[in-house]
């Protein structure tokens, strides 16, 4: 899959446009994307930090791309998620790496990590399950 084709598919999803991320790396089991900070992403109105739901949504979006069969297929169905919030989501470009842990015929498990400037200092980690049928 070419990055430009993946981005074009993402740009057809209204909520992905709302998040405003770009995919920077993509292969069969592993995606990376970056999302510039926007006012509409704020959760805490005093500290202007990212809304926890935006961080979770961004990670879920990139996780779902890793288990997308091909660009023409329907999006995988999310079953559930767990997010571990590790550091404050300070204003700044947020990055997410999503890695497929296990891809079966019906189910898939994907791990994600989100960071601001240093991947070794993650803002959040996530675990996402998808139904592929």
């Amino acid at each position: 899959m070419k990055l430009s084709d993946i981005q074009a598919r993402c740009d057809r999803v209204p909520f992905f446009r709302h998040l405003g991320f770009s995919v920077t790396e993509a292969n069969d089991t592993h995606f990376v994307a970056r999302m510039p900070f926007e006012q509409r992403h704020i959760g805490n109105p005093v500290l202007d930090t990212y809304h926890g739901g935006i961080i979770a949504s961004f990670m879920e979006a990139i996780a779902s791309l890793t288990v997308l069969g091909d660009l023409a297929s329907l999006p995988p169905k999310p079953i559930n998620l767990t997010v571990d919030y590790l550091r404050p989501g300070l204003p700044g470009t947020l990055n997410t790496r999503a890695m497929v842990t296990r891809k079966g015929r019906r189910m898939s498990s994907v791990e994600t990590v989100a960071w601001l400037e240093d991947e070794a200092k993650p803002v959040a980690k996530g675990l996402f399950h998808f139904l592929l049928v």
Partner: peptide, 13 residues
């Protein structure tokens, strides 16, 4: 169809 992430954000709020 709403994206699941919106529901997650709604719960968090």
């Amino acid at each position: 169809m709403l994206h699941g992430g919106v529901l997650t954000a709604l719960l968090d709020s």
